[in-house]
Design a binder for these strands. Structure first.
Lengths: 222, 222
DNA sequence: GCTCATGGCTCTACACTGTAGATCTATACG
DNA sequence: CGTATAGATCTACAGTGTAGAGCCATGAGC
């Protein structure tokens, strides 16, 4: 059973990488494997399960990478974000799946655990670690999705092309930052700068906790 | 033309609110309007355009709310996040659309402009405003999507139910924060705490900029 | 050898999706 | 009256995921 299932997931992943997720129909996957469509079902129970299997494959690859990540917590936390982003760039179709189909595999749990460990090492009190992990991962997933889906594309929110639709003076903020909107955005640098800002946020929270009560105080949850 | 188009969008929005986005087929919308499916096309050009129209409707409603938001920048920035979250809770189907179909309507631009204005008022240098707006909005959209899609659901990442699959000691981070994982998560409080953390981040950036060169220095882009 | 059970496949079909293009219908205008 | 137009219906197509019946090859037991 496992041989055919792997073959099916391989085919689906290849199709998604070549032509995007919309190209991954059961018929297309079956064609690629060399069987008829209904033959997929004993191995992957449904289309939804196929998609979950595809995500599981990616997370498995990432978990292997993650296990080799060394350094202090800032280095590791930064590397985890970069690894997620590299994966999203190699497989743009995966981002929406990661956001819309929460993965509850052992590999996903390992990833969360790695972030927990880094935050604890940073001095974040244990009671704040789950929230901060969620904040950090939420930002990363949001960034990857925005990048993949074009929300950050140049000119997406540039209003100069729609001056006929909004009255003069309707966008004071844009007017004030106008000359910075012209610059090509470097999303690599931006992602790193954002990660650095979030790490500083983590440091500040750890420092506050150190100043008030120590790293694992028994105060009430926030 | 505008009467029928409004009717079609109303029908689509009602269907989505009642039964989710998957229920919004052209046939279902047409049934609700009382016409046959092909009759929708002169008014909304395609299914994709219908979805964009639905988003546009929501953003229009939010822009009206946003225009009435008053207070200093911290109050406003916080309120914008809350408004977005209220909208997502009233219309859970909208979140994935907002992330996957970047909206380039005047209302969307107005929303961005309001955040720009708040950041400028906070003292963030103009050259950093676009990046920080993207950071803040990325977090908010990511949070809303994660909430709507179940990523934050209790037990999603609780590994205690899968102890048979991971060796003892494989999750040191989880072990260290175990007792905080038992608590029911209050996502309202969490969202507010996260927003407060991001506002502090903004304050820190503004303060750094004030200390180094003033609010609109002519240094190179970051 | 034959029979039976099993796993894994094919075949046929269904309900559903978005939408193309031809045609119909009601209305307004000259 | 005839003509033009807007907006609808009708019919059909290509594609989607998947149900259920049946087929086929293989292995085990007699």
């Amino acid at each position: 059973m496992s041989g055919r299932r792997e073959e099916i997931l391989d085919a689906a992943l290849d199709l998604a990488d070549e032509r995007g997720l919309a190209a991954v129909s059961m018929r297309a996957v079956a064609d690629r494997v060399g069987v008829t469509p209904m033959a997929l079902y004993p191995h992957v129970g449904s289309k939804a399960a196929l998609l979950d299997g595809m995500v599981g494959r990616l997370l498995g690859g990432m978990a292997a990478e993650l296990a080799g990540t060394e350094g202090d917590w800032t280095v590791r936390l930064s590397a985890y974000g970069r690894q997620a982003r590299e994966l999203a760039k190699r497989h743009p179709w995966s981002v929406n799946l990661l956001l819309t189909r929460p993965a509850v595999t052992p590999d996903a749990v390992r990833f969360v655990d790695a972030i927990y460990t880094a935050l604890l090492e940073a001095g974040v009190p244990a009671r704040l670690v789950p929230r901060l992990e969620r904040l950090v991962s939420t930002f990363v997933l949001g960034f990857l999705a925005s990048e993949a889906n074009g929300r950050f594309a140049p000119g997406t929110l540039d209003p100069r092309g729609r001056r006929g639709q909004l009255p003069e003076g309707a966008l004071p903020g844009h007017a004030a930052v106008a000359r910075w909107l012209d610059l090509p955005s470097d999303l690599d640098a931006e992602f790193e700068a954002d990660q650095a800002d979030l790490r500083q946020l983590v440091e500040r929270i750890a420092a506050d906790a150190g100043a008030s009560a120590g790293p694992d105080s028994r105060t009430l949850p926030e």
